Amino acid sequence: MAQPARRKFLAVVDEDTGAVEELPRAPYAFGGPHINVGIRRGRQLACADSGLSDREFRVLVWYWFATEECQAAVQMTGVAIAAELGMSPDALSKTVKVLKAARLLVESGGLGRTKFYRTSPYLAFIGSGFEHREAVSDWNPPEMSIPNPSERRRKKAKGGETA
């Protein structure tokens, strides 16, 4: 017959009396996948002079934490992502366009007309250090200084048409 598994616990023993008191254990705080985020790059992007608007930074961070598999795209529609972020699908689309142009988000597959994105492995990565090193070997580093939103607006030509 199989022996029951031995239960391990942390305890404090009173040296004088020999009394054993079991210490309570808290469950591990971070269940599920974990992500490595480059602290310096993340902070640089959070700064006002990065050129990212608050909305763009919020969408980028959402993608950091919405990825649950190593190098996998977030497989959600823009409508679902926009609803979760509390913005319109058009606003999300424009934001993703800016982040993609700066190589902060990478297009990674799709289904029909729906495109899926993930963050650049330079910014955030799920996996071991060896896997991370291999992942960044194929990518150019992202732009760390994005033109300010006011500089990205379309300039009107003399004829009144947008360039």
Rank of each mutant, 00 (worst) to 15 (best):
A46D: 05
C47E: 14
C47T: 07
C47L: 03
A48W: 07
D49I: 05
D49Y: 07
S50W: 00
G51A: 12
L52E: 04
S53Y: 03
S53D: 03
D54L: 12
D54G: 13
D54P: 07
R55K: 12
R55H: 10
R55C: 11
E56R: 01
E56W: 00
F57W: 13
R58A: 15
V59P: 03
V59N: 04
V59T: 09
L60N: 07
V61R: 00
W62P: 09
W62Y: 15
W62S: 14
W64P: 00
F65Q: 07
F65R: 00
A66D: 07
A66P: 10
A66N: 13
T67K: 02
T67W: 00
E68I: 07
E69I: 08
C70Y: 00
Q71A: 15
A72P: 03
A72K: 03
V74Y: 00
Q75G: 03
Q75M: 10
M76K: 11
T77R: 15
T77E: 08
G78D: 10
G78R: 05
V79P: 06
A80D: 10
A80C: 07
A80Y: 02
A80F: 02
I81D: 03
I81E: 05
I81M: 09
A82E: 07
A83Y: 00
A83E: 10
E84M: 10
L85S: 04
L85N: 07
L85W: 02
G86F: 04
M87Y: 00
S88A: 15
S88K: 11
S88G: 14
P89S: 15
P89D: 11
D90H: 05
D90A: 13
A91W: 01
A91G: 08
L92I: 11
S93T: 15
K94L: 08
T95H: 11
T95G: 13
V96K: 09
V96M: 11
V96C: 12
V96R: 06
V96L: 11
K97F: 13
V98I: 15
L99C: 11
L99T: 04
K100A: 09
K100V: 10
K100H: 05
A101L: 01
A101Y: 04
A102F: 08
A102E: 02
A102V: 09
R103I: 02
L104A: 08
L104K: 00
L104W: 01
V106C: 10
V106I: 09
V106Q: 04
E107C: 14
E107Y: 11
S108T: 09
G110N: 10
G110W: 03
